[in-house]
């Protein structure tokens, strides 16, 4: 197995002899190369997975970020990722990696492949209609585009660069199936009988930080609470086909795709 992998790398290096001295270039010479993605995956598991998780989704308790999300950030491109892996992040736990350039590009190719489903998707709905649908159904809690919106749910700016259409569809049709980090719904009851529902932004052994359904920032001392309950159901209502047709869904996604 290892021999085959090494042989594969050897072939790649031969194929790449034309791209020697790739330092400073901003496009991955191995972009989309299936063999490079596979080799990059092996490198990732050996060099990166301990902190970033075997699936690249990060490990919250050690502050290792979800690498699938980075591509949606402004200024993040192949060269940025290449440089970050090579040089590390100074002053952080992320070390430099003295790997050969070809292997660094393999890692970039692998990381790009993790979000390819989102990057290559096409959205052919009517964005103008989608904008109206968004204003009517989503903007109370979500933000997208210049129009702004509510703060109870996550920002949807650039969401089509982070998530594939199938995943977005599921989140709209069945929002409780997978609730985004930092948006877990809770209900707390104070000693004075007040009951507040919201999403839990942060917590420790002594306090809770919520955004309430009324979209206010409220903090509570645990000691002052009668009850704190984590809810299974998302605060977002489900949109089955009877409420949002397949065509309307496509329009909505097209609008979101316009708002990168």
């Amino acid at each position: 197995m290892r021999l085959r992998l090494l042989a594969g790398i050897g072939l790649l290096v031969l194929a790449l002899s034309g791209v020697r001295g790739t330092f400073g270039q901003d496009v991955n010479p191995l972009a989309g190369d299936v063999r490079a993605v596979r080799a990059g995956g092996a490198l990732f598991r050996a060099q990166c997975a301990t902190c970033h998780g075997a699936d690249g989704r990060g490990i919250e308790s050690i502050d290792a970020p979800d690498l699938r999300l980075m591509w949606a950030r402004d200024g993040v491109d192949d060269e940025y990722v290449f440089t970050t892996i090579r040089d590390g992040v100074p002053g952080s736990i992320m070390p430099p990696h003295g790997l050969p350039e070809t292997e660094l590009w393999m890692l970039v190719a692998f990381l790009a492949s993790q979000v390819e489903a989102a990057a290559n998707a096409e959205y052919d709905g009517d964005a103008v209609n989608g904008r109206e649908l968004f204003a009517a159904n989503c903007a109370e809690c979500h933000r997208a585009g210049a129009g702004g919106g509510g703060v109870l749910g996550p920002s949807l700016n650039g969401v089509t660069r982070r998530r594939a259409p199938e995943a977005l569809t599921q989140s709209i049709r069945e929002p409780s199936r997978q609730i985004a980090r930092g948006f877990g719904p809770v209900t707390v009851s104070g000693a004075d009988g007040e009951t507040v529902t919201g999403v839990l932004k942060n917590e420790d052994a002594f306090s809770l930080q919520l955004v309430t359904e009324e979209q206010e920032l409220r903090a509570f001392r645990r000691g002052g609470l009668r009850r704190m309950q984590r809810l299974e159901e998302s605060l977002m209502p489900a949109f089955p086909e009877t409420d949002l047709s397949a065509g309307e869904l496509a329009d909505l996604l097209a609008y979101l795709h316009e708002n990168q």
């Binding site: 050996a46 060099q47 301990t50 998780g53 075997a54 699936d55 003295g98």
Partner: peptide, 25 residues
């Protein structure tokens, strides 16, 4: 834990596999 034989290269980590950690410890 998912073990996998690593390469043994001086200066490179050789964990020998990957670990999937549930987020709710």
């Amino acid at each position: 834990y998912v073990p996998e034989e690593p390469a043994y290269t001086p200066g490179q980590a050789s964990f020998g596999g990957v670990v999937f950690i549930e987020p709710d410890g």
